[in-house]
Amino acid sequence: MDPKSAAVIYKVFYLVLNLVFTIYELIENFSVHLRNKLHELRHEFLPVNKHRSFMKLDKIPTHLTVLLGCEEPSYQDLANLILWCLAARITFVSFYDYKGALTKSEDKLRLVVEGKKNSTDHVIWHDRVDSGYKNGYTGRKVHVKVLSRQDGRGGFVKLTKELSGGADFTIDSFDQRLKKDFQFPDPDLGVCCGKTFSLFGYPPWQIRVTEFLTIRTHHNIKFNNFVELLSRYNKCEQRYGK
């Protein structure tokens, strides 16, 4: 076979392969949609006990971070996530939107959350401007923060610039300084949304031991999907090099 016609054959096979996968994805999407609908129907009659769902778990992340990836933020669903985190006693939630849409419209998210939450629950927002939070809340509380691309590698660059004058620094001292800027502990669980699994410039220093899980999309995410994520996280075991 001459190389020219061989190249054509390879190309045809490549196209067919892609076509097969596209069809497969469509079928999969449809079946997931169907399953969710069925699940919803079932639970209309059987309300879920949220607390019981979390009781089976041995560990709960302290900081859950959601990476929106290529997806546009859906305020209703993100607000639901915050409330479920409250119920699961996750104390820190952050959202990373590299495109910056969420940073611009954080107020919108706040409004939705305020409308949905119980009056005894506290959602503490960590803004760029107002960083100190007030202690002394009673009841359940969750800290929320929106991250954008500037918080990524830029955070490390900023700190490097600030350090001068015979700076004798170590990993620990660097870590402390970066933690102060970042305000939140390092994330334990990262949830990546959408089919493109990438960090899109997420702050690099903070993700040393973060477990990353994926979801198809955060749009229309259901409570049982959230519990599923936590139970997947529950199964992850850290060895810390050993």
């Binding site: 590698r153 899109f200 410039g201 997420y202 690099p204 040393r208 990353f212 899980l213 992850c236």
Partner: peptide, 13 residues
């Protein structure tokens, strides 16, 4: 499903 302190800067994208 974690990076265990490997190339954290370089795998950003």
């Amino acid at each position: 499903v974690r990076f265990s302190d490997y190339l954290l800067w370089q795998i950003s994208n």
